[in-house]
Design a protein around this nucleic acid. Structure first.
Lengths: 95, 95
DNA sequence: TTATTAGGTTTATATTATAAAGTAGTCTAT
DNA sequence: ATAGACTACTTTATAATATAAACCTAATAA
């Protein structure tokens, strides 16, 4: 039987977020929005889901006068992503 | 920006179905159920979605006295699966 | 002959994703 | 100094999707 695909990561937007964070290490809300093409609302919701699960950390501060939301992968998040990729390979006929 | 992930294929169960059919060429309902671990109801629904989209063909007949549902990938389905795999790779940090 | 099993489908419910609307504050031009 | 537009989000409502429960029809077993 095939491995389960972590439902938290098996979502186009959350996968795009995590994918971006895996290479960028750290990213702002607005940058993530531009990268993914998501609406702010959708992005906000999905970031919070990832945060609640402990996959990312969210740091809120100010850049100048404006609020700034920084997102960073946690150790757990990185592990989960790697496990997800491994599980996924089983589905893609990688011999 | 990342490619879109075909929502019809980006579902654990439908992906498992299509993945199995890509190698098996042809498979029975009951075999797919055993392979995927899905309930019959869920499998029935997802197979019909794939059929409605033209990704698979469903042939109904009888084996002995019992009904038999055979599933086969269509040309379109195979193409869509390959495109999905290509799109997905962008998300998985494959350099 | 009733009751259990095979092989499904249909319908209802729970979950998830997405969009619309709202919040709080800032900048800009008049 | 203030109306209007903009930044950077969050919350809430709605649409889409997945899953489970219930149902169906016929076959076989006790």
């Amino acid at each position: 039987m095939l491995k389960e695909l972590d439902p938290l990561l098996h979502s186009q937007l959350r996968l795009a977020i995590v994918s971006a964070l895996m290479t960028a290490e750290e990213a702002e809300f607005t940058w993530l929005q531009a990268q993914t093409g998501a609406t702010a609302g959708n992005l906000s919701v999905q970031l919070n889901k990832l945060k609640d699960a402990g996959y990312i950390e969210i740091k809120k501060s100010f850049r100048g006068n404006y609020p700034q939301t920084l997102c960073i992968m946690t150790k757990l998040g990185k592990e989960k992503f790697k496990a997800y990729v491994e599980a996924l390979k089983e589905y893609l006929n990688y011999k």
